[in-house]
Design a protein around this nucleic acid. Structure first.
Lengths: 198, 198
DNA sequence: TATATAATTAGATATATATCTAAACTATTG
DNA sequence: CAATAGTTTAGATATATATCTAATTATATA
């Protein structure tokens, strides 16, 4: 299920009146007039909420003579709940897409911004290019190792004198995280990817 | 969990931006600035959504220097989902409360509105009393039996001549339901209870 | 065919909320 | 202490929505 559906599901359930309607329906079919009566609401208000619940497929209806009977659609109520959890906890299911022929950009940045001795001539001003340069450097750090701020500074200095700015950018774009002066590489899934920049 | 909490839970999840924040957090801690950047939103907007998620206890925060890191609170995300389903499907858990000393009212209505031969002198105008009279009659029907409209009319006639009105009231207040001219008693949990009338 | 009943639609109103910019606050750093 | 960076607060705006009354539609009944 995709974002919109899941949001619609929660929107349908995010109103106390609609929740009470569902509770009333849990004992069996109830018609519109009876709902209005039991909730102390006008019938148009019930129609309004019924429409919302119907759009989210949380209730079913049948008509007999003039009267419309509502009942729960339990499968969909449950399904929405499950889809929602799956969506949130779907760690990295859908993010490992492209890695496409933008290699060319990467190569040109590495060629143009880094000298033969490996020093960074200047910090790229263009966002995409800056991310490429940062990622290039950060990939030379050891995953899992905890660095002190001083060690990070020493690591950066051979690339560029303005180690403070670069260290900050490492944090800013999620290449690293920091806790009590101690720095550690983030898993690559967390990095802000230049491939994803519009 | 009570209504308000459950509604608050779904409200927190009923916005696409907040859903995307949770998705980003599912890979690990992310700080506010990075969220704003990845979602293309201003930082105040991120603060706004973070507050909503925090109020619903769906995320946790830690501060390091100037930076606030967010992460999921998975237990509460799951708990809300479960509580929500339990609430909706809690058939009749909490509705079997009172049955209190209002017996007096019931007795007085039965005494005053029904003659010794069992006929209903008149349909009570007062809502509460009308419900008492209707329930008294309807309790003489057999649960599970399917009646034709004609049979219902014949059943009512000994009580009162205006069987059409009374038959309609049976449906209206959920004592019975109707499908294709066939009438059947509803389970008592569905009846509109005079005990619950304000 | 006229009346009655249940539901829906239309339109109005009031409240809520998602977003932004600008200003203020809180640490951190030089 | 001055400047910087990340966050939060305040205030404005635009959109969404829960509710109501009045009018309309749909179906049933006399």
């Amino acid at each position: 299920m995709q974002l919109d559906k899941i949001v619609a599901y929660h929107k349908a359930l995010s109103d106390p009146t609609r929740m009470r309607i569902l509770l009333l329906l849990s004992r069996g079919e109830v018609h519109g007039h009876a709902l209005a009566e039991k909730l102390n609401l006008s019938q148009p208000t019930v129609t309004h909420h019924a429409a919302k619940l119907r759009e989210a497929a949380l209730i079913l209806e049948r008509r007999d003579k003039n009267t419309v009977y509502f009942k729960l659609n339990p499968e969909f109520i449950q399904a929405g709940s499950e889809a929602s959890l799956k969506f949130i906890f779907a760690k990295g299911v859908e993010e490992m897409e492209e890695e496409s022929p933008e290699h060319s950009l990467k190569e040109s940045v590495l060629r143009n911004f880094f000298a033969k001795d490996g020093r960074l001539r200047q910090i790229p001003a263009q966002y995409k290019k800056k991310l490429i340069a940062l990622q290039y450097m950060v990939e030379k750090l050891e995953p899992g190792v905890v660095y002190s701020e001083k060690e990070i500074n020493e690591f950066i200095k051979p690339f560029h004198d303005d180690y403070a700015t670069i260290r900050r950018e490492f944090i800013m774009h999620q290449f690293m995280y920091r806790e009590n002066e101690r720095y550690e590489l983030n898993p690559p899934e967390l990095w802000t990817r230049w491939e994803n920049v519009k």
